[in-house]
Design a protein around this nucleic acid. Structure first.
Length: 927
RNA sequence: GGGUGUGUAGCUCAGUUGGGAGAGCGUCGCCCUUACAAGGCGAAUGUCGGGAGUUCGAACCUCUCCACACCCA
């Protein structure tokens, strides 16, 4: 093996081998276990969030596979309607083309071309990440099979009356020319104005104050062209007399009524609200209640349309605003303008200000679907981890609006509805089916609805459509009800909820039993990663490394504002002055797993990653040591006599505890605890102690073949088991080493991937060996502590004394002389009975027994006194606290007996420690 | 305004039915000891956000306040 760990040289060849051997496909007849990948956007690339989620999914899948389950990790990607269409349109724009010039068919060809390129990027990334997905089953939401499922679902829901067509106010993106869902609209507070307009009263009516106008306030002056009423609160005495009277709407010269409606907050502004039902969601509701006309004043571009007075026609909404304000001013009807903070709804894609706009769209009536979806979570068929997300889910589901599923795009599943010339429509799988279904004349001309379905409509079918539905396939039966969904909280509404609704509706099964919600990965300062902030970390850069200039170039590429690019460059150069070194996939995956505690957000810290890269190196070198000492030697692969040392029994026992901790952690989705147990066992037990303890045996010229075989076999077998234990989180390094170690451990098999995941064997837990080694460590650490504190070189051999020990101490000393000599660099140990004279010494305590290191020529008297005093202070502080506790009558009376006993024993121990240290201090002082 | 979450060592985070405050990184000291300097050994470091309460006992339970983050209106 190479002397240092070099992930780049081992990882991809291993992945290639796995894939070639088809190890990722489901096999065997075990319990099915499946995970459906949240299909990434085919236009994008995998970011840290994906790397995180994939690390967890792959760890679970690999463990399940090793546990003998029939395992499927379903890969695929999502056609991402708006995002993809925008990308391709931008590409066309670069060639001075528009999609309308190209036509629908040609445009779609271009999109498919782009999909081919871009989709490949994602699968390559997944291979680098080591994802053990079944590539044979890769699906795309626009595949023929998926499309058939989409049509089927649409038709069935329509036939049941759950899908309907209606004219409603939707969120309209005037740039993209499509409706978008509430979830795709982001409202942020922005600085704006509140304009106060005087609306003249018609017919000479006057207000209570004698004015011939009332004042309405608005943040959107241009919409006044579409006003159809002014509303006041029903209990507002100021305007009670005016209700039922009329306003003469300026600029348009239309008479509109003054109405009373609960919606109006009389404390806010003047208490008079202009009502524009066709351009505001609240006003829309008011309009419906009062049967007001819905006056649309915009075109699809959000310019003023031809129903408005001629002067304003064709003006963009923001230009119209300026003109209208000016006109009010000129008419003397502008009361005042206040600064005002308001929430501005912007499209998630493209950032355009979204317009509430009256259009015909297709809707899913969600009520009947939501009910069972809520119940599935209530009764525990689906469980969220962490559990509090269930509340988020319930809150949203219980206040669910009908889902607008049509989009005015070209890229997506075209809606299976056909119109005749009179605007009647017919829904069915295809035109022929429609004609038959509705008995339409052969010569009746039909045209298909031009719109497509919301991308989430098809991703909602992901778990069952990928398994062959509507056919009743074996895969559907085995894997359709998947085990875990791993995803971010941000798409609980978009996807998780809709998937639950659709899957229950069409398969009567839940799509997944557990929803594991991950936290967000943030940058080193805790900021969200985003392209515009330029703080995105590409997981592949962490794996392969990237130099500073390339990183800066990548982060500033395509930035529209030079100022922003400058800032990004500065921050990047500050944060990563050396660029990023190559850490390898295993280190990245292990880091992400170790950070996955309870779904909280993660500030991504490169130091943590470096630490786990070092851990990989540690494993690598431990394996080198093991191989150096076992290859070509008898490791009892073929049986034969074996004698286990104390250390052997100890590490085997500790391995059982580690396996237990890891399994428990996986079962409770605590990947951080699993990672911690793996790390702790490997580094601090196997490497720090066991490998060191193996040396005195292996280097002992007098060791018997059985002893040698015992230690060699323990070295390789514990390592082999560890590799299986760690494999799901760090697949590559474990496979690489396993290939060499397995034969020595008597294991056969082609890959660690399909070996059994370790389970604790109770019979291998050896409490006695653990206690013995604890004692041994106590002595060694005592001596090391004295060396460290007193600056005695580790290379300096020591002659030490044990005093006041028990028979057990003596037995342990005799049994472990070789270990003590090697690990504490001790030349000789002299056993002294209690009270016997010893040379002036530094003292360490192991239970009652004193470990004495003679000071002559090595230790300064004052230094040892100071060291003793420090120990005494520490022990006395503890003692004081415990004595206080035990002196408290109500503690002794009320606390559980076991707790009291424990405290008493601790108290005795500490007393003895303090006494012994004081004694030692006195004897040194007296000299 | 309603809701959720977070606040523990310099930094990033654990802390599982309330019972001795932990890890990694960083820091300091010593060491190239035949697996590993991406290492070994040793050490230092905390009013557990503030306050009040329940309890024999609170990082943990209750209340309240503060700060930050996110979601919804």
């Amino acid at each position: 093996m190479e002397k240092t760990y070099q992930p780049q040289s081992i990882e991809q060849p291993i992945y290639q081998r796995w894939e070639d051997q088809n190890y990722f496909a489901p096999s065997g007849t075990g319990t099915p276990f499946s995970i459906m990948i949240p299909p990434p956007n085919v236009t994008g690339s995998l970011h840290m969030g994906h790397a995180f989620q994939h690390s967890l999914m792959d760890a679970m899948i690999r463990r399940a596979r090793m546990q003998g389950k029939r395992t499927l990790w379903q890969p695929g990607s999502d056609h991402a309607g708006i995002a993809t269409q925008m990308v391709v349109e931008r590409q066309l724009a670069a060639q001075n083309l528009t999609r309308t010039e190209l036509g629908r068919e040609k445009f779609l060809e271009k999109v498919w071309e782009w999909k081919g390129q871009s989709g490949g990027t994602i699968s390559d990334q997944m291979r680098v990440l080591g994802d053990s997905v079944d590539w044979n089953k890769e699906r795309f939401t626009m595949d023929p099979g998926m499309s058939a499922a989409v049509q089927e679902v649409f038709v069935r829901l329509y036939d049941e009356g759950i899908i309907y067509r209606g004219q409603r106010l939707v969120n309209w993106d005037p740039k993209l020319h499509t409706a978008i869902s509430d979830l795709e609209v982001l409202s942020e507070e922005e600085n704006g104005f509140m304009w106060h307009f005087r609306y003249p009263l018609a017919d000479g009516v006057k207000t209570a104050e004698g004015k011939d106008y009332i004042v309405v306030a608005t943040t959107r002056p241009e919409t006044m062209l579409g006003d159809s009423a002014v509303a006041v609160a029903p209990d507002d005495e100021r305007y009670a007399d005016l209700v039922g009277k009329e306003i003469l709407l300026p600029l348009v010269d239309r008479r509109i009524p003054i109405i009373a409606d609960e919606y109006v907050d009389k404390e806010f502004g003047t208490g008079c609200v202009k009502i524009t039902p066709a351009h505001d969601f609240n006003d829309y509701e008011v309009g419906k209640r009062h049967n007001l006309p819905m006056l649309n004043i915009f075109t699809d571009d959000a310019a003023i349309n031809n129903d408005a007075p001629e002067k304003y026609r064709g003006l963009d909404r923001f230009d119209a605003r300026k003109v209208i304000v000016k006109d009010f001013e000129e008419l003397g009807l502008l009361e005042k303008i206040d600064d005002h903070k308001l929430k501005v709804p912007r499209s998630e894609r493209g950032n355009t200000v979204v317009e509430p706009y009256l259009t015909n769209q297709w809707y899913v009536a969600v009520e009947s679907l939501a009910k069972p979806a809520i119940e599935a979570v209530e009764n525990g068929d689906i469980q969220f981890v962490p559990k509090q997300w269930e509340n988020t889910y319930f809150a949203w589901m219980r206040d669910l609006q009908d889902w607008c599923i049509s989009r005015q795009l070209w890229w997506g599943h075209q809606i299976p509805a056909w119109y005749d010339a009179e605007g009647n429509f017919y829904v069915g799988q295809d035109e022929a089916t429609v004609r038959a279904k509705y008995n339409l004349a052969a010569d009746l001309e039909l045209t298909q609805d031009e719109d497509v379905l919301d991308t989430w409509f098809s991703s909602a079918l992901w778990t069952f459509a990928t398994q062959g539905w509507p056919e009743q396939t074996e895969d559907l039966d085995l894997f359709g009800e998947s085990d875990v969904l791993v995803t971010g909280f941000d798409i609980i509404f978009f996807w998780v909820a809709r998937m639950i609704m659709m899957t229950l509706k069409f398969t009567n099964k839940v799509p997944f039993k557990t929803v594991y919600i991950t936290g967000l990965i943030r940058d080193e300062r805790g900021d969200k990663m985003s392209k515009s902030k330029g703080n995105v970390i590409d997981p592949l850069d962490l794996i392969n490394g990237i130099d500073l200039d390339a990183l800066v170039a990548k982060r500033t590429y395509g930035m529209m504002q030079p100022r922003l690019a400058e800032k990004v460059e500065k921050n990047t150069r500050e944060a990563y002055p050396e660029g990023m070194p190559a850490y390898g996939t295993d280190a990245l995956r292990f880091t992400l797993c170790s950070l996955a505690s309870g779904g909280r957000d993660i500030k991504f810290d490169l130091n943590r990653l470096e630490g786990y890269r070092n851990f990989c190196n540690k494993i690598w070198n431990a394996a080198r040591y093991v191989l150096m000492n076992t290859e070509g030697n008898d490791c009892a692969q073929n049986g034969g006599e074996v004698e286990l040392s104390l250390a052997d029994k100890w590490i085997i026992s500790r391995l059982q505890h580690a396996e237990d901790a890891v399994n428990k952690a996986y079962d409770t989705h605590r990947f951080d605890l699993a990672a911690q147990a793996i790390y702790e066992f490997m580094w601090h037990e196997y490497c720090d102690w066991y490998l060191e303890l193996s040396k005195p045996v292996l280097w002992d010229e007098n060791a018997t073949p059985a002893q040698l075989a015992g230690t060699r076999c323990t070295l390789v077998r514990v390592l082999e088991a560890f590799l299986r234990l760690a494999h799901p989180m760090m697949p590559f390094i474990t496979e690489e080493i396993w290939q060499r170690v397995a034969p020595l451990a008597g294991q056969t098999g082609e890959t660690v991937m399909t070996q059994a995941f370790p389970e604790t064997e109770a019979s291998k837990i050896d409490a006695e060996a653990e206690a013995d080694v604890e004692w041994l460590k106590g002595v060694i650490e005592g001596v090391r502590n004295i060396r460290g504190e007193m600056n005695i070189a580790p290379s300096k051999p020591l002659e030490i004394f044990f005093r006041n020990g028990s028979a057990q101490d003596k037995a342990r000393m005799e049994a472990n002389l070789a270990f003590l000599q090697k690990l504490a660099k001790i030349e000789s140990i002299t056993w002294l009975e209690a009270g016997a004279e010893a040379p002036m010494s530094a003292t360490a305590l192991v239970g009652e027994m004193e470990v004495l290191v003679p000071m002559a020529g090595l230790i300064d008297k004052e230094a040892e006194l100071a060291r003793l005093q420090k120990e005494i202070d520490k022990a006395s502080k503890d003692l004081q606290r415990i004595e206080g506790k035990l002196g408290n009558e109500s503690f002794v009376a009320k606390a559980p007996a076991a707790v009291v006993e424990k405290e008493k024993a601790k108290c005795e121990d500490l007393k003895s420690v303090v006494a012994k240290l004081e004694e030692q201090k006195a004897s040194i002082e007296s000299l």
